[in-house]
Design a binder for these strands. Structure first.
Lengths: 125, 125
DNA sequence: CAGCATCCGCCACGATACTG
DNA sequence: CAGTATCGTGGCGGATGCTG
């Protein structure tokens, strides 16, 4: 009904809460963008994404694969080669995310300024 | 240099990592969208956002205020009335976020399907 | 009404060591 | 090379009780 002003209902079927939960973590967005130039191998990704650990790269890649954003291909050579690439859906979600990235770059100074003003206001109480 | 293919450098000055860290949490995006219709009081927000606790609403609102997304206005009546509203920057970030929300709604079925396929593939090993 | 204080479980994340 | 396995920790977030 129109009187129900609640937004984004709190159940597992809520698409928005789901997507935020998945790509809102520390590494997902970074990995997705590292793959926009094309497929990458595990260690290539690891060196492109500053600060990520082996464990988190593996784990986040598995999650992204499960949600359908990333494809994993194993080439049974010696030593083994594994390549990760965006699926169609992966390339698709990068578009709205890119808007956010651009926004973040543009507004960085404003945010820093807002923080300083807030902290000054709080410390004066 | 061109040979440095690292993305989104891992320092506190990285705008992208900052923005994701701020609005990638469980509640920030929900609060921002609950404020797009106009200013809201604390308890109104609480009832619009299903499942949020008092504690997290307060805390997330403080963070959003500090980053400059939200304005907090106290009306010294009895009992006190507090209204939260989006700042200009708040209204601004909602635009790219809205793209993401639309995307999430549209692709929800695909994601669920991807999950099922993945889980079946994994369980068969 | 709009919060703050406190306690606490859980899990995201990191570090390290080991492997097919 | 591309992972697993294990352990440790900080902090996110929930529950509850109290207050100006």
């Amino acid at each position: 009904m129109a009187s129900d002003r609640r937004i984004f209902h709190n159940n597992e079927a809520c698409p928005v809460r789901n997507v935020v939960a998945q790509i809102g973590d520390k590494w997902s967005l970074l990995i997705l963008f590292a793959l926009t130039d094309g497929a990458e191998r595990f260690n290539a990704l690891k060196s492109r994404i500053e600060g990520i650990s082996q464990r988190m790269l593996t784990q986040t890649l598995r999650d992204l694969e499960r949600e359908g954003y990333v494809d994993r291909t194993v080439y049974p050579e010696v030593p083994v080669r594994v390549e990760y690439a965006l699926t169609e859906m992966g390339r698709d979600i990068v578009k709205p995310l890119y808007e956010l990235v651009v926004w973040a770059d543009k507004h960085q100074p404003k945010i820093e300024q807002a923080r300083k003003i807030y902290d000054k206001k709080v410390s004066s109480t």
